[in-house]
Design a protein around this nucleic acid. Structure first.
Length: 881
RNA sequence: GGGCGGUUAGCUCAGAUGGUAGAGUAUCGGUCUUACACACCGACUGCCGGGGGUUCAAGUCCCUCACCGCCCACCA
């Protein structure tokens, strides 16, 4: 027998182990069924599971489990990402504690150290994914630095190089002086900050006056090689072409003109430092300027003589010193505060330095048009609102800098010959220079951007470049589930690579889910310490409760504000499932399935009702999941189980269960059927408790719900008419309960009730449902249209049927009067709205006839109700008089 | 500077294709009615951000304003 309250820990551990040992989620390649596949967005090996992962994986798991139920052959590939910069940082920090740097170890030893670290901690995040219950195929676990993925990376690199889609060149790139590496444009975070705009006077060389430039970076003055204005700026008309003297360094530079300059900003006059600003870099090239580097790769002023006394200072120190010097020399004309955004390293938040260096690039600008064209016809993005963002990014894309000056990552497969300078790009390590035969080749020291290997993930994890069974069966994958923050880093690049190398998009659909925020709406982050740790939640409330909460709040296109109370709330739901199941098990045969009965012809109205509702819910959930409306799926089953199955159905069959006979057999079989199917409906969202209960069902020992199919449609159980009859009976019972509660009559006090049905049919229906009124705790029930209404009675009207509760002297008569007034007031309010509608010719002429009819019926019903209630009220008053 | 999203019950949020405003939680009242107090029965709460428009009908579609939040962008 199941314990009284659900205790998740043991149950979850048991099923996790069961599924892993039985390889339940490793697809049988020879099995029939359409393939369905997802690749997991690989979390960083350095990472620990945060709530965003939990959401991401829960949603994928729901889709996978549901697909299995629909008879599909499902492959969900797990794995991790080597996360170049961030992993290197983590290991470097560990080294720093030992007082060492990676340079003390040397490249090889350092990489060895990272692998060691990965071995030790890399499994941690995977363990955490297991705790969530993710039904991934653990036999196919992948890692972006594995040998087979490395082979894919090399092949892709070499081919793109040969096609001219990868090139090497000297450009100005985003440089993190702390991580000591180049970064891609999208790895730069722009953080708003308060800066200063300094206005500095530059004098003409011929002594004929001056211009004033505005800059936020005076330290780069040392590298100025021009001053630029807009060609049509009248303030500077006739001055273009003259020479100016750069302050501090006294360099003579030209005043040039370019339409790039914004006349409105600052003084409309711009100093040009081609080596230290991407725009100035462009100006430098179009105007043939001199390129002078003044800041080094550590963010310090170059030791080169050009920096003079500032050499060796940090950027910040130099800025201060130069401002002071300019102030002294009188060339600082003005300074004003300026709010602007500063580029920062997305990993360490250090201010980015634009830096000229030799890097490798992917010509994404050439790959972008094809990637753009497949949306929305070949790839559908949900919610659709992200399509625009996707287009916008691709339309403005610039080539992707893929080389990183770090050690941890896929080393670039390029070698240079020290003898003749030949550049060799090759899948296999070359032994000698094909041009001069030199054997002393040097491999490029850089590694690839982490996202380069991630971009291949959908096919590299399936064994590409081999033409594997997996690829043949499961590529392209069905859907990619991710948060929007990596739409660009990852999704767009996967599409490009998939198209280029597989000749086919990597997935058919993209589902962009919410970002999980804290209760104040802030992004959860380690630094804020506001994260809800999913593991804590799992340990406290169970994985099922966490998962269901995430699913229930995963409304499309909105962020989720997560708080612990919600998880606690849904823990109650999991417990409810447990207890409803316990009740069922107590009332079912212990060792065998109940005798089956024909569900299409069961007699009890409540059976017909619950079976009909079950059909509706099955269809509803299926439709919701098919269109990624996880919250709708969660909510419809939630309500069905709690408010219909538990609150009404289980209560109603208690009477049947008391004695043996046909009634009990019917009830047992319907109960058994409905419970089983509810478990199936819930299983994708709530895998553990459903698995446990399933295996406890009679005749189900050893059966695993995870391998069961979605419950089939039972057309013969669709009986909306019976269902509505049942609802009428429920409304009648509720009316009695409301009277009891509002008049403060103890539940233990059994009531006498008179029902005066509005029609023969209603009378028959009430008679048929007579037994249900036990739920209102009655002593005597009279069903008779002609029955006399005793004067001392409380009343209400349900669908024309008068509900009259006999009162003895103990009740508060004033309370009943007030209650009647309130009730009549409600009716009046509805009537007012309705009659307005129905007296509107527009409504009568334009609205669908069906609607007009039903509104008229409602009006008639309400008028009838009001009349009856007024009569009852008058009678009641008489009794008081 | 572009683009996107939000504004619904005290709180946190649902409300696909326009047709009587919902859930959890909180609050109030009652109940050990033998599956569940992680429960049950009932009650209460809403000019659906402001204004305008389309429509017989708008929380839902259009315009506009306000305030929040996010994303993108080479404002020196």
């Amino acid at each position: 027998m199941l314990s009284k309250a659900y205790e998740p820990q043991e149950v979850e551990a048991h099923w996790r182990k069961h599924w892993e040992e039985n390889r339940t989620f490793t697809p049988d390649m020879s099995a029939p069924g359409d393939p369905y596949s997802i690749v997991i967005p690989p979390p960083n090996v350095t990472g620990i599971l945060h709530i965003g992962h939990a959401l991401n994986q829960t949603l994928q798991d729901i889709l996978c489990r549901h697909a299995r139920q629909k008879g599909k052959k499902v492959l969900w590939i797990p794995g991790t990402d080597h996360a170049g910069i961030s992993t290197q940082n983590v290991v470097e920090r560990a080294l720093a504690k030992e007082g060492k740097t990676r340079h003390d170890l040397g490249r090889e030893a350092f990489i060895e150290r990272v692998w060691q670290w990965k071995k030790e901690y890399g499994a941690r995040i995977l363990e955490q994914i297991k705790e969530l219950g993710a039904s991934v195929d653990w036999t196919r676990e992948a890692f972006t630095m594995n040998d087979d993925l490395a082979r894919a990376v090399r092949k892709v690199f070499v081919q793109l190089y040969k096609e001219g889609l990868i090139y090497k060149g000297k450009y100005i790139v985003n440089w993190c002086p702390r991580c000591h590496t180049a970064l891609a444009d999208d790895e730069v975070d722009h953080i708003d900050s308060k800066g200063t705009l300094w206005h500095v006077r530059y004098d003409f060389a011929d002594g004929s006056g001056s211009v004033t430039i505005a800059t936020t970076r005076p330290e780069t003055i040392l590298g100025d090689t021009a001053v630029c204005v807009h060609p049509e700026d009248e303030r500077y008309a006739g001055l273009v072409g003259k020479k100016l003297i750069v302050p501090i360094v006294n360099r003579e530079v030209p005043l040039i003109a370019d339409r790039y300059v914004d006349r409105e900003f600052g003084t409309g006059c711009l100093k040009v430092t081609p080596c230290h600003d991407p725009n100035d870099w462009n100006l430098g090239h179009t105007h043939g300027l001199e390129f002078i580097q003044v800041i080094d790769d550590n963010g310090n002023m170059c030791l080169d003589p050009v920096c003079g006394r500032y050499a060796g200072m940090s950027r910040e120190e130099c800025r201060k010193a130069i401002v002071e010097d300019l102030r002294e020399s009188g060339q600082l004309v003005a300074e004003e505060p300026l709010a602007h955004s500063v580029g920062c390293c997305y990993r360490c938040k250090t201010v980015i330095e634009p830096y000229v260096s030799t890097q490798w690039f992917v010509a994404t600008s050439k790959l972008a048009p094809a990637a753009r064209a497949v949306v929305p016809d070949e790839i559908r993005i949900y919610p659709e609102s992200w399509v625009k963002t996707y287009y916008n990014w691709l339309d403005n894309i610039r080539d992707w800098c893929i080389s990183r000056q770090i050690w941890w990552g896929h080393r670039i497969p390029a070698w240079t010959c020290p003898e003749c300078g030949e550049l060799i790009v090759s899948e296999e390590d070359p032994v000698s220079c094909p041009k001069c035969g030199c054997t002393n080749l040097e491999q490029d020291p850089d590694v690839l951007d982490t996202w380069f290997s991630s971009a291949l993930w959908p096919f590299s994890t399936m064994g590409w470049p081999e033409n594997t069974e997996e690829l043949k069966t499961f590529y392209p994958t069905n859907v990619l589930v991710t948060a929007f923050d990596i739409l660009f880093f990852w999704v767009a690049r996967m599409i490009m690579m998939g198209q280029h190398f597989m000749g086919e998009v990597p997935f058919r659909e993209v589902y962009i889910h919410a970002l999980v925020r804290d209760a104040q709406g802030r992004k959860m982050s380690k630094s804020l310490g506001n994260g809800i740790n999913p593991l804590d939640m799992i340990h406290k409330y169970g994985a099922d409760a966490l998962r269901f909460t995430l699913a229930a709040f995963a409304a499309m296109g909105r962020d989720i504000r997560m708080s612990e109370e919600r998880i606690e709330g849904y823990r109650h739901f999991v417990n409810k499932i447990w207890n409803a199941s316990r009740f069922a098990l107590m009332n079912l045969p212990e060792d065998r399935e109940p005798v089956s009965v024909d569900l299409g012809t069961v007699k009890g109205l409540y059976h017909r009702w619950i079976l009909n509702r079950l059909e509706e819910v099955k269809a509803e959930e299926d439709a919701a999941l098919e269109s990624y409306r996880f919250n709708d799926a969660a909510q419809c089953v939630y309500k069905f189980l709690w408010n219909e199955f538990c609150d009404w159905y289980l209560e109603l069959i208690k009477a049947d269960m008391r004695e043996e006979g046909r009634g009990r057999e019917e009830a047992q079989f319907v109960l058994y059927t409905v419970l089983k199917e509810i478990l199936l409906l819930l299983h994708p969202m709530i895998p553990f408790v459903t698995a446990e209960v399933w295996s406890a069902l009679p005749g189900h020992a050893g059966s695993d719900i995870a391998t069961q199919l979605y419950p089939p449609v039972r057309e013969e159980c669709r009986k909306p008419g019976d269902s509505d009859d049942m609802v009428f009976l429920q409304e009648t019972i509720s009316a009695i309960r409301t009277i009891r509660a509002e008049l403060d009559i103890k539940p233990s006090c059994r009531l006498s009730v008179v029902l005066r049905p509005a029609s023969e049919e209603q009378a028959a229906l009430l008679e048929r449902g007579r037994g249900f009124f036990e739920l209102a705790r009655l002593e005597k029930l009279t069903i008779d249209a002609a029955a006399h209404a005793p004067k001392a009675s409380a009343s209400n009207v349900v669908r024309g049927c008068e509900v009259i509760v006999l009162l003895d002297g103990a009740v508060d008569f004033q309370a009943e009067l007030a209650r009647l007034d309130k009730e009549i007031g409600k009716v009046d309010k509805d009537l007012a709205a309705l009659s307005g509608k129905l007296s509107n010719a527009g409504f009568l002429n334009h609205a669908p006839a069906e609607l007009v009819e039903s509104e008229k019926a409602r009006q008639a019903d309400l008028l009838d109700k009001k009349a009856k209630m007024l009569t009852l009220q008058a009678r009641f008053k008489e009794a008081l008089a």
